[in-house]
Amino acid sequence: MTAWQIVILASIVCVALKVAGYLIPPKAFEHPTVARIANLMTVALLAALIGVQTLGVGQAIQVDARVPAVLVAAVLYALRVPFVVVVIAAALVAAGIRMLT
């Protein structure tokens, strides 16, 4: 697939999902189990992405400067530091460690 095909197809699917909620009768999604799974799906995907982004290199697992950077980010989020500041701090921690090692 080309990058444009991926970008356009994924965008269409995401817009369709938003539109769907305004079109379908609400009853179809009233079941609490369905709502719970949808909520947990978001959590599972984000957590898996964090893992892959922190430790993955292609198909290998590698512990490097990203790990301390993400730990710093977790501490900063716990201290209620704003998102953008945390993201920049994480980048700086990783870049700093790479410069020194």
Binding site: L9, C14, L17, K18, G21, I24, M41, T42, L45
Partner: peptide, 23 residues
């Protein structure tokens, strides 16, 4: 690409529930 699209779509499913609530 296919995995990327599917990830984006699965994360977008919560918007269905938001739309239902907002309608």
């Amino acid at each position: 690409g296919p995995a990327a699209i599917t990830s984006a779509a699965l994360l977008g499913t919560r918007n269905v529930f938001y739309s239902i609530r907002m309608a």
